[in-house]
Amino acid sequence: MSDADVDAEESDADADAHTDTDSDQRTRREPVVVVVEPETPGNVGTIARAMKNFGLSNLKLVDPPELAEDGEAYGFAGHAREDVLPNADEVTFDEVVANYHTVGTTAITGEDDRSHERFPFKTPAELRESLKSVDAPTAIVFGREGRGLNNEELSRLDEVCSIPADDDYPVLNLGQAATVLLYELRELTVDETQLPDTAVTRAPEDDVERFHEFFADFLEVTGQREHVREKNALLMRRLLGRAHPTEREVHSLLGTFRKANAKLEHADHLAAKYDEPVYPRE
């Protein structure tokens, strides 16, 4: 085997190793979701559904209620009833603490640096950025519906996350909190979305200029005074300049104003022919 062949094989091996490393790292960064002593099966199903929405699959439950296949949990889970929910593991809180980098969730409490159980906390967006650099198995830990995680439990977890909300009612229910938080973490767990190409391609400038010509004709046939036409034409140019319309959007507008102008001109023609009053003018 030539030196070139050896170098090529080593290069391919390095590339494969790099790909494997990236894949392993991404797997490590996909958090598991832990729910401590959930009281309502429906909330477990809601969390499983949110996990399915945002690319997570590993659900762990501490002292869960019975999750009957014909019950609320499976009814609320959507397509997560097929995998996330039936594959959920029952674990202890001690096992979670021992095996994961843990993030506890809590409502905003107004506490400061004199209370370290719930302070400092990260928002979901801040947590997303923080977890990008965490190369360890991670668990997002949610508490009970009515009282959440207690201070003793929070003191055993590595980080705290809280969702900012209105002071008058800052407490989200368990399913809502999980959905908001997992949505914010989607960059770590979802490669692509169901959305098509979101890049906006602005319509060709000659099409845009044709639209402005049609709009100018429209202003004229509606009988506006010259200074008003000039002002409205400039307003439309500024509006369209900010909007960056697509080719399809401009073509739709062109068709609309073409028909409007033709009808207005025809109305003027008929009014003149039969000596009828024209539509009101300024």
Rank of each mutant, 00 (worst) to 15 (best):
V97P: 00
E82I: 03
L270V: 14
G110W: 12
D24C: 09
Y169G: 11
P245D: 04
E220H: 06
S130K: 10
V36A: 06
F121V: 09
D217G: 00
D22A: 15
H244E: 13
A260I: 07
P65G: 08
D20G: 08
T106V: 15
E30R: 15
F211Q: 03
D167R: 15
F211C: 01
E66P: 04
K132Q: 11
D112W: 03
I163Y: 04
A203W: 04
T92V: 02
P164L: 12
T105H: 02
L182P: 07
H18A: 13
L172C: 04
V103R: 05
E129W: 02
E187N: 09
H227E: 13
E129S: 07
I47F: 00
A107F: 06
R210H: 05
F121T: 10
D217L: 03
Y183D: 04
F76V: 02
P170I: 12
V278L: 03
G75C: 02
L254N: 02
K263D: 12
E184L: 11
R248Q: 09
P120Q: 10
L157I: 07
V35F: 01
T106E: 05
V141A: 00
P280T: 08
A136F: 10
E145N: 06
A165E: 07
K273A: 13
E249N: 03
H101F: 07
T138H: 04
E159Q: 11
A48D: 05
A107N: 07
E69Q: 10
T19Q: 14
Y183K: 04
S155E: 08
A233R: 15
N261T: 14
P86Q: 06
H266M: 10
F214P: 00
D89F: 01
P41F: 13
P204C: 09
V96N: 00
V171A: 14
G143L: 10
E220D: 11
L185F: 03
L157K: 03
I163C: 08
E95Q: 06
G255K: 11
T138N: 10
R186Q: 14
D20N: 15
R202Y: 00
E205Y: 03
S252A: 12
T27Q: 14
A178Y: 05
V228W: 02
E187Y: 04
V200R: 11
R156L: 14
D7F: 10
A98S: 12
C161T: 11
T201W: 00
L59W: 01
D7P: 02
D24N: 13
S133G: 12
K60W: 03
Q25V: 15
K259R: 13
E152F: 08
A68F: 08
K259V: 11
L61I: 12
I108V: 15
P41C: 13
E192R: 09
E220C: 01
D197C: 06
T189L: 02
T21A: 15
G241F: 09
P86D: 05
D135K: 13
R114W: 13
A48S: 11
R156N: 09
A68P: 01
Y274M: 08
P204Y: 03
A68V: 14
L182G: 04
F142C: 04
I47Y: 01
Y279L: 12
E39Y: 03
A199M: 06
F121E: 05
D268E: 10
S57C: 05
D135T: 14
A267S: 12
A17V: 14
D63V: 10
D168Y: 05
